[in-house]
Design a protein around this nucleic acid. Sequence first.
DNA 1: GGAACGATTGAT
DNA 2: TCAATCGTTCCT
Length: 190
Amino acid sequence: MINKSYFWKKSTLKVAKSLLGCTLVHRTKKGIISGKIVETEAYLHDDPASHSFNGKTPRNDAMFNYPGIAYIYFTYGMHYCFNIVTNRKGIGEAVLIRALEPIKGIDLMKKNRKIDSLHNLCNGPAKLVQALGITKKYNNHDLTKKPLYILTKKSKQKYDLVKTTRIGISQGSALLYRFYIKDNSFVSKK
DNA sequence: GGAACGATTGAT
DNA sequence: TCAATCGTTCCT
């Protein structure tokens, strides 16, 4: 399981990059569901696209919590997105997990998503939340603890990393704060 | 109290 | 290309 210091010993941008290849795990009553992180986006404290840009509010509260805490927000009236808080407590930075390559519990993912297509289970921030059965109750959950946690990547794992612009934002759209594993077919739409 | 909008998705 | 759908934020 990942160490707490992982989320603040390096910059948020570096965490966003190094999370690629790590595994997000959810131990549910029905079984273990997990996936390899293949796409991330960084949201910094001085970043106009970040929910934390204008300071702390009831909604973004968790972004100002300890690094390694989950920040889960509701958007578009129907979707949830999952973030990992980075930097020191009180700063307001996080990494949005945008896509996973399914590993375990694929049958459960299909049930949660109500679809059968492997490649559409986790190729989007709200999709992976649904597939893993993550709910708002995990907002402020410590991701170094069960039942929702991160496993570090295997050191042998090799891949090319792509650095590009973020999706679905208006301000800060030129910043290269999105990262994904090159040629991985589970990355969200380009 | 009211209005505008959104770190998306899925159907057309 | 566009509708769905509603909590959060910001303005009055």
